[in-house]
């Protein structure tokens, strides 16, 4: 069990998310806010794309948003993408958050008939797979909010 004690959950990209501390919680995606021009960005960064300012602070982003646009990919992407066996088509889309930021994300849903621009979406953080050290590699996806 000693291995398990050291096992960690690691975001697939540093500065991308807060890992939930328990299974009851859902993590938050992280962004940067420019203190000079007030623009927002997904994922922590050092330089503002808009004003070139370097005075940015980390902010947690809303977990809910609306679907802005989407697609479903029916072929495996080229490497380094590792397709599951058997390959499953996967949904990707842009989510518009209440704070005015639109971010790009994997979706849990892969049936285009079940996706609609403007529908409510919520964040889900899940394990992609384990790395060589047995740590969980964590990724974010958005899923349609169940109605009713």
């Amino acid at each position: 069990m000693s291995n398990n004690a050291e096992r960690q959950q690691i975001p697939i990209r540093e500065g991308m998310m807060n890992i939930p501390s328990s299974e009851r919680e859902n993590g938050r995606l992280l962004g940067s806010k420019c203190n000079d021009c007030h623009e927002l960005f997904f994922i922590e960064r050092q330089i503002c794309e808009n004003c070139n300012g370097q005075n940015l602070e980390t902010v947690a982003l809303s977990t809910k948003g609306k679907l802005y646009a989407f697609t479903v990919m029916y072929y495996p992407a080229p490497p380094p993408y590792q397709a599951p066996d058997p390959f499953e088509p996967y949904g990707v889309g842009w989510i518009e958050l209440p704070e005015g930021l639109v971010l790009y994300s994997l979706l849990t849903e892969n049936d285009p008939q079940k996706l609609k621009v403007g529908m409510d979406m919520e964040l889900r953080i899940e394990c992609l797979r384990q790395d060589d050290n047995g740590n969980d590699i964590m990724v974010s996806k958005y899923r349609p909010v169940e109605v009713g």
């Binding site: 992407a77 080229p78 490497p79 380094p80 993408y81 990707v92």
Partner: peptide, 24 residues
């Protein structure tokens, strides 16, 4: 790199998303 591991930036995806929004 992380986007490519997840297969998110394959070029057909980016172009298809524009097509989907155009339809919508």
């Amino acid at each position: 790199p992380w986007q490519n591991i997840l297969g998110m930036k394959a070029s057909p995806i980016a172009f298809a998303t524009v097509a989907q929004k155009y339809m919508s």
